[in-house]
């Protein structure tokens, strides 16, 4: 068996890696009879020692309170960002849904009803413009108990159209309706 066969195990042996007993014996025996591999083992021993010094140069250190506070501030900023994005996506979806709804069922100039907003499950069901139309995917969102209606302007071919968007307490857009 030649040295090439032994080199990987010689390096692992020098690094202190536990080899299988039979391989360990074979390496130990080879090192006794091969000056070249013995020198290689010596070199890798020296590399291991030197690398241990480099490793200990940067000790393990738990973060202090200031570091934790800083990373928590980043956490808080990140947790807010998806909500903003959801509202943005929701507004885009609202515009799309309402334009399709308006084209498919026609726009009636009825007076808006008062009271709690009703939400139609599909655009086709929204024959009354005061009824909110559920946004695509809104049914998959968690149940919400309170929310707010925000009014936005959406650009369209005939000028800006005002849209009311129903936002749940979690910041996610649920439904929208056109405003006369």
């Amino acid at each position: 068996m030649n040295c090439r066969h032994f080199v990987p195990d010689v390096i692992d042996h020098a690094r202190g890696v536990l080899l299988e007993p039979s391989r360990q014996r074979a390496v130990a025996s080879h090192l006794l009879s091969c000056a070249s591999c013995a020198a290689l083992a010596e070199q890798h021993n020296a590399i291991s020692l030197a690398l241990r010094r480099v490793a200990s140069d940067i000790p393990e250190q738990s973060p202090d309170d200031l570091e934790v506070r800083r990373v928590l501030a980043a956490f808080d900023r990140r947790r807010v960002r998806p909500r903003r994005m959801s509202v943005g996506v929701g507004l885009s979806l609202a515009a799309s849904v309402l334009i399709v709804a308006g084209l498919s069922i026609g726009w009636k100039q009825d007076a808006p009803r008062s009271g709690a907003p009703a939400v139609a499950a599909t655009p086709a069901a929204a024959t009354d413009p005061s009824v909110f139309v559920a946004l695509p995917g809104a049914s998959a969102l968690p149940h919400f108990e309170r929310g707010e209606v925000i009014r936005v302007e959406v650009p369209s071919a005939g000028g800006a159209v005002q849209v009311d968007v129903l936002i749940g307490q979690d910041g996610l857009a649920r439904a929208a309706r056109l405003v006369q």
Binding site: N2, R4, V7, S36, A39, E42, Q43, A46, I47, A50
Partner: peptide
């Protein structure tokens, strides 16, 4: 910092 060595792969 390392010991000198010459490698001869047989």
């Amino acid at each position: 910092p390392l010991p000198a060595t010459t490698r001869t792969i047989s």
